[in-house]
Amino acid sequence: MILRIISFILFILTLLSAFGGRINPTYVMLPSALTLALPYLAIATAVVSLAWFCAGRWITAAIGVAVLVAAWKPVSTAIPLHFQSEPTHKERTFKLLTYNILHGWDQEDPEMKAGNRSFQYVLDADADLVGLQELVDINDTGEVPRLEGTLRDSLLRKYPYRAGTTACDLKVLSKYPVKLIKEYPTFSHYEVKMPWGKLNWINTHLSSFNLTDEERKVMKEVVSVKDTEAGLKEMKGSIRGKLKDGFSRRAERAAAIRELADRISGPLVVSGDFNDVPESYAYRTIRGNDLGDAYAETSFGPLITYNRHGFLFHLDQILYRDKFMKALKVEKGSLKSSDHYPLLSEFEWIAK
């Protein structure tokens, strides 16, 4: 009986996490918080349902399956079941890299003995377009260590077109002519002159929760059921306030991005560090009804793009207007110099 009650609680939480992104976190925070755990709750529901089926408890198993069926659309975005594809016209393909580069620092090698591994990855990835977050001035040696000599020369030679001012931490590197249209709080708008036409590109870095290391430790302990009672008391205080503030600020900026996207006709990419997961309120607001998700349409299984503090979430996104382009694949780099993994995508331009 107890196991059934626990299973039903799991099923309810899975439904709430699947549809939590439809509720504005400015008013109610819990659904948004649950959406962070959607892939894990969905997988747990599938495993528990299978266990009940094997145990011969058909009704409980059927309820679990019904939950997954009802939540399939959001679940399939967080846990896609697709594969990469080949282009119809190879000559009309381009690669786009999005990377929260953490100012070029190296969390695994603080003394940078191996040189600047983050920018070496950017160079080796050989993307046509590179959208960077957490980079104020690529020419500032105080901000970006060990970007020098051959590496610097090769990078600037490969990407002769660059855009972004020192007023924000968003920059783009391009093999094609690029023009900064406008910088907004947490996102920037560019136009790229591609060989086949004009591409509008929004590079974004939405607000984080701004948790301290001690607050992150508390959240990890709650998740691991270690010191849970004390952790929950703390979460009702400063942590809860920061979570609500983070969700609310992202919701506000997501609405601004969506407003800009609605004013843009033609090919469009919105990429960067959303600091939020697929099917979250911010994600759904930005995606609207006209943008595809490059990862969800070309990949298999859940994705983790953040690698610190035990917060294993898919925070970096690549959305695009799919009537003009086709997503072919998205690959996550394994480099952990930054607290975010780089994402390298490939598209085929199908606009006439």
Rank of each mutant, 00 (worst) to 15 (best):
S118V: 05
F119G: 13
Q120E: 12
Q120K: 15
Q120M: 10
Q120R: 15
Q120C: 12
Q120Y: 10
Y121K: 02
V122E: 03
V122D: 08
L123Y: 15
D124H: 10
D124A: 15
D126A: 15
D126L: 02
D128Y: 13
D128T: 06
L129E: 09
L129W: 05
L132E: 04
L132A: 02
L132G: 07
L132T: 13
L132H: 05
Q133M: 05
Q133A: 08
E134C: 00
E134K: 01
L135W: 00
V136G: 01
D137C: 08
D137H: 12
I138R: 07
I138D: 03
I138S: 11
N139G: 08
N139P: 04
D140E: 03
T141V: 00
T141K: 02
T141C: 02
T141A: 08
V144N: 12
V144S: 10
V144A: 13
P145H: 10
P145D: 14
R146T: 11
R146Y: 09
R146H: 14
R146D: 12
E148R: 05
T150G: 08
D153H: 11
D153Y: 09
S154Q: 11
L155A: 10
L155T: 10
L156K: 07
R157A: 15
R157F: 10
R157I: 12
K158E: 14
K158A: 15
Y159W: 06
Y159G: 12
P160S: 11
P160F: 12
P160G: 10
Y161D: 07
R162A: 12
A163C: 09
G164A: 13
G164Y: 01
T165D: 13
T165H: 14
T165R: 06
T166E: 07
T166M: 08
A167M: 09
C168I: 07
C168W: 01
C168L: 06
D169P: 03
L170T: 09
L170D: 03
L170I: 12
K171Y: 04
V172G: 07
V172Q: 06
V172C: 05
V172W: 01
L173D: 11
K175V: 09
K175H: 13
Y176P: 07
P177D: 09
P177K: 09
V178H: 04
K179C: 01
K179S: 04
K179R: 04
K179P: 01
K179L: 03
L180D: 08
L180G: 07
L180T: 13
L180E: 15
I181H: 06
K182G: 05
K182Y: 02
E183N: 10
Y184I: 07
Y184C: 00
Y184F: 11
Y184P: 04
S188M: 01
S188H: 03
H189V: 06
H189E: 02
Y190Q: 00
E191Q: 11
V192Y: 00
V192S: 08
V192P: 03
K193R: 14
P195N: 06
P195V: 06
P195W: 09
W196R: 12
